[in-house]
Design a protein around this nucleic acid. Structure first.
Lengths: 206, 206
DNA sequence: CACCTTTTGAGAGTTACTGTCACTTGACGG
DNA sequence: CCGTCAAGTGACAGTAACTCTCAAAAGGTG
């Protein structure tokens, strides 16, 4: 779910100067990058320029973000999804757990970092490289969720049924998110995700 | 569906020397590339080396394949899928049409170019860049199929339900394909695709 | 055969990375 | 407060994927 990243630091205070500076630098780079991307476009913005704007050396940019794409797509949410999923009651139907875990997180993210979410989604929509990168990330999310779900329902980790369910649900959620985004109605995500999942729940008429 | 590409020329004879040479060159490059990829890996094989092996200049390689990834992922099947889909009877349930169109094509491709399919899938499995690129291609396939399906069922082109259905079906098909591939049982694709789609047909227990 | 168009190769330039190394700057014990 | 050590940074050199331009070569055509 690489369109979600955390801007606010995880643990509030208790950090040494070193750690604080790291967070600052990271944010400075991201901020500079987002600004430049919006002004001139992603492809038209060389990393060197981002470095200059963030007042660090190009090497440092690559130290913080292994690739330029990662500046937009760093995914700090996967662990949270897993956590949320594992926190669901074991007697809940697996798909319902998945649904809740996903919806909760997305709602939360849309609430406390909506601006960022929009920049991200815009860039992902526009830049093919980012689209690809994000799908790639989804594959990993899919694998992880598949494993947890398989475990929870006592099936083999690579069970085809489980994989299909997870893949379908994630695909539906993704469609719903972009559907809302395209209409500028991100506040409806939750509703539309439910609608999308209902389509799957009802069963496809083969 | 970028893991499918056509090696055999579409129209058999009737080509000038120029056209024939183009096809030859294209194949020479692909062949050389596949060989080197298998020997040393994708990332470890620079385009210059491919060019040398295929006995053309690096510029020529880029003229035939806009990116190195395209050497593996050129997708010549999308038009065929659309065609196959449009050829289905209009009174058939849309999802069934989709199912048939996809299964038919994949079976055909698995039959007449199995070796190539395997090389491709192997590379896609192993190389992240290719995975991303293929997912990107899938997005486009999804959009196209969505439009056709919407049209056939008299809905808006961007109808969420249609998009969800298409996304879910493609995701399921993809899972089934890789499921077979991972087990070295590509001959079972058809069976497993049916199984995967049945999961969706039955409806997910929310 | 001569003319025109397509295709090709050579070369130069850009950019996203990668690796190395010396320098600076927080962290920490005395 | 200070010296030492480790972490973080910047400068630099190198690689590889493209991109562009231009002139030479080769196919098609009258």
């Amino acid at each position: 779910m690489s369109f979600m990243a955390r801007t606010t630091p995880t643990a509030p205070p208790k950090l040494g100067l070193r750690e604080r500076k790291k967070i600052q630098t990271r944010q400075a780079i991201r901020r500079a990058a987002y600004q430049l991307f919006q002004e001139q476009g992603y492809d038209a913005t060389p990393v060197d320029q981002i470095a200059e704007a963030a007042d660090v050396s190009p090497s440092t940019v690559f130290r913080y973000f292994p690739t330029k794409e990662d500046i937009v797509l760093t995914d700090e949410y996967d662990p949270l999804i897993l956590e949320a999923l594992r926190a669901r009651p074991l007697d809940e139907p697996p798909v319902a757990s998945l649904r809740h875990a996903l919806v909760d997180l997305i709602r939360q993210y849309a609430e406390d970092a909506r601006g960022e979410l929009e920049i991200r989604l815009t860039l992902i929509r526009q830049v093919p490289a980012l689209r690809g990168r994000m799908s790639e990330g989804m594959t990993r999310t899919r694998d992880m969720l598949g494993e947890v779900l398989a475990e929870r329902s006592g099936r083999a980790a690579d069970d085809l049924d489980v994989r299909v369910v997870v893949a379908a649900v994630l695909a539906a959620v993704q469609e719903a998110i972009f559907y809302c985004f395209d209409r500028g109605r991100i506040e409806d995500v939750e509703k539309e995700i439910d609608r999308a999942l209902d389509v799957l729940a009802r069963g496809l008429p083969l």
